[in-house]
Design a protein around this nucleic acid. Structure first.
Lengths: 306, 306
DNA sequence: ATGAAAGCGCTAACAG
DNA sequence: CTGTTAGCGCTTTCAT
């Protein structure tokens, strides 16, 4: 195995110099750096490229399939930049961050972010750079990417209001997701309510477990409902079986899921691929010394189907 | 951070003794081991638990969604045993194994196995234990788990022959999958052909890209075909749009995929969850010193739907 | 800007 | 069975 010492000998420099060329933690003259890089290439040295860690709490209500959609995107994006991905299933809040950091990752992609996420202060203080997929209440000093879920929910409301509906319902994620104040769920409801009030539309909000039973209960309890917004990929097919025309339906889910339903459902796209890729881009920039970029929300779009 | 030296001091032993208690690489007296473990607990030492590596080539024809189904299962199973998972996207054959080993994983789960996989000799020689999801031509000295794809394809043929079909077709994975002699594809075709010959059924075999166009071409070229077996998750919906009744169809795919199609398609279940979990079980046993277990094939089952 | 040397946490060879 | 010691590859401090 080619070590940093081999490279140093070959380039006629000290091991520390090679280390500094690789980490960029102190200035090395262009000439020396070039010689080192040349030796690295000719000897085929591979720095045990520290992986990117994905912090993935697998708690109640977290749909692993949905989470894996992001992981997949992160893996693909990391691969382009020659990084492997360490999937760290951490349910222990702030301790999970420490565990991840101790595992020696170059940077962290943090998923399933809560409004007052206990991991946030740790991440802020931490030397290891991170990018959150999701936005906490106070994102200062962090890098966050997410879909603008408030706007996404509002888009659904506007679409239904435009079609003349005056009594609509929201079937959200599982109750556990709200209980821990998950960012996207809370911001979504805020956007939904605000839009409905703005439009003068009556609305009901319900949580929905993956069995989708809440849909039936909802229609029983509220016969006046003529349209439903559902943000729950796990329950989508069950909800579809229950919410039939003439009741209108809009889903918040990835397009490829919406295209597979029967009938094909109108939806606001959750761009998991884009968000995962963007998170890696920002993280790599952070690893290379860039400062935190703050919050970057992507604009939702609605596709009308059947 | 609590180090192994801290634990050693607290327990009144040498650092190496603590190391050996943790790795089990040499015998330590029960008394001493207990004292060490007690110190580990009271000091809160966390051994930077080496991750399990998942070797995942992302080449042409590899459906990342399908691969991620296995990764998901591996992550869930590893989590139960307090291990994180390093997803290593390695397209470089044998070099990929070395890269994975150098990254310091405790063991490897190897996916997308080819008949004469160049990684196999390396894995056999390698000190890091591994479990393959898939079976190469010569699995001696390895641990392999997989669905018995030969039996799975044969099951489809028997089902269709029993229904009276005399001209059937196989739509397999993408051509690239055959070109690199991927294990499951090659064993599948073998099982398919053998079963068809046994049953005296005429058959055609075609590769199928993810666009599913091969389905249309197949039916144009072979008007005599009355039933199709498709083993291609990416192309399944496109194939379904084309292969309509009265032509019979059986898919080889996970049940949850088959249940979502419209109409719901008869299928042989690919138990990705079970295989991923089993792979981790076997790998953990290997890490704890068990010898290679050879090949473990799971028995396919067919579910008849619409 | 660079090198020498000490140190990191851990494992493995050696000694008894 | 266990402690001593030398190493592993790499980073960081200290010096110049």
């Amino acid at each position: 195995m080619v070590t940093i010492a081999d490279v140093a000998r070959h380039a006629g420099v000290a091991p520390s110099t090679v280390s500094y060329v690789l980490t960029g933690k102190r200035a090395i003259s262009g000439e020396t750096a070039d010689r080192v890089r040349e030796s690295i290439r000719s000897l085929g040295y591979r720095q045990r490229a520290a992986a990117i860690g994905v912090l993935l709490p697998l708690r109640d209500g977290v749909n692993v399939a949905v989470a894996m959609r992001f992981v997949r995107a992160v893996v693909a994006a990391a691969r382009v930049r020659d990084r492997d991905v360490l999937v760290i299933s951490a349910d222990e809040g702030a301790d999970g961050v420490l565990r991840a950091v101790e595992s020696g990752v170059a940077g962290l992609v943090v998923m399933d972010v809560e409004m007052d996420d206990p991991r946030v202060p740790v991440l802020r203080a931490c030397a290891v750079p991170s990018v959150l997929i999701g936005v906490p209440t106070d994102p200062c000093g962090l890098s966050c990417v997410d879909l603008d879920f408030a706007a996404a929910y509002a888009l659904c409301v506007d679409h239904l209001a435009d079609k003349g509906h005056t009594d609509i319902a929201l079937l959200g994620p599982a109750r556990a997701v709200y209980e821990r104040r998950t960012g996207y769920a809370e911001r979504g409801v805020a956007g939904f309510s605000a839009a409905a009030l703005r439009r003068g539309v009556n609305f009901v909000v319900r949580t929905c477990e993956s069995d989708g039973l809440a849909a039936k209960q909802l229609l029983t309890d509220h016969a006046e409902i003529t349209a439903v917004v559902v943000h729950n990929e796990a329950a989508l097919s069950a909800v579809l079986a229950c919410v039939q025309p003439p009741i209108d339906l809009v889903a918040i889910c990835p397009d490829e899921v919406a295209r597979r339903t029967e009938p094909k459902v109108s939806s606001v796209h959750v761009p998991a691929e884009d968000l995962g890729r963007r998170a890696v881009e920002l993280l790599m920039a952070r690893i290379d010394g860039a400062p935190p970029q703050g919050v970057e929300l992507s604009v939702p779009t609605l596709t009308v189907r059947d």
